[in-house]
Amino acid sequence: MSALLELHGLEVEIEGLPILRGVDLEVRPGEILGVVGETGAGKSMTARSILDLLPAKASLSFDTCTFAGEDFIPARARQLARGHRIGFVPQRPRGSLNPVFRVGKQIVDTLRRLRGMARREAKEEALNLLRSVRITDPERVYRSYPHELSGGMCQRVCIAIALAGEPELIIADEPTTGLDVTIQAEILKLLGEVIAEHNAAGMLITHDLGVVADVCDRVAVMYAGRVINLGTTLEIYREALHPYANQLVSIASSLDSGGTPREIPGRVPNPGDELAACAFAPRCFRAEDDCFGEEPPLIHIEGQMAFCHHPLTSEAASV
């Protein structure tokens, strides 16, 4: 299957500190790809690179990057794709809406800019969008200011805005952090449904392995600025190749089942820390000398891809 978005060797530096150290990933049509990792792994930076939302001091480079089969330059996404072909759902919905304008105006402005609609037509469409995110009284929400709406409702509005440009890809960055559990479940379900209804694909950035298991078809696990393991959610949760991904899942599962989690010693490296050839090697229970000295090879096994010298499988065959 040809990928909708394909990234190879994405690197980002901010003031000389490497933030992304060669990210490879692809989002396939119709799927939701989860991007997980701990603080500083580069999840949000990856999304921001694609959306051209990097801080001014950042410098970006990559080997190849295609979107829907065409070459795509992340640093020029502003003109080409952001909002239009790629929709964005932010982490802090209330903070992302303009507090001094009514919600309706904000959706109408987006529609007029992205789809060149006339004012009246845009209002009709804005109400439709509010209905499509399951808002039962779109007229009232249309006239509301963001502070008059609950956090869950603001996030629905942000999803409506993300849909305004009829995007092919929707990137959501921790869309439910800070929302209550019952609201989180509704928003995640809604996100999955609208992505399917609009024949789009999704990229969901989160640190919550429960959220990934609930809504994602495939998962990319990031560590210290790289995707170190990528595969279907079922595969990654059953038997992730990379020891880090494997242990992360097993910690979450054992907490969930009341078992004692196996500790990962040490902590996540900060940008600028000196790294071994495999950044996870100092914390890895399978690490040997080659992990410290040689770049880990890219291996493909049964649909999973991982960078690792000693993956968790007996028939590891490098490609």
């Binding site: 209550d180 019952t182 479940a185 995640l188 379900k189 298991a213 959610t233 949760y237 969930d256």
Partner: peptide, 25 residues
């Protein structure tokens, strides 16, 4: 019941369910 059903679990075979409470708190 609603709270437990809405909480995601790290198991791809488990799906959350939200249709239990009406509206928001």
């Amino acid at each position: 019941e609603a709270l437990l059903k809405a909480a995601p679990r790290p198991d791809p075979h488990y799906k959350t369910d939200h249709v239990h409470l009406l509206g928001e708190q």
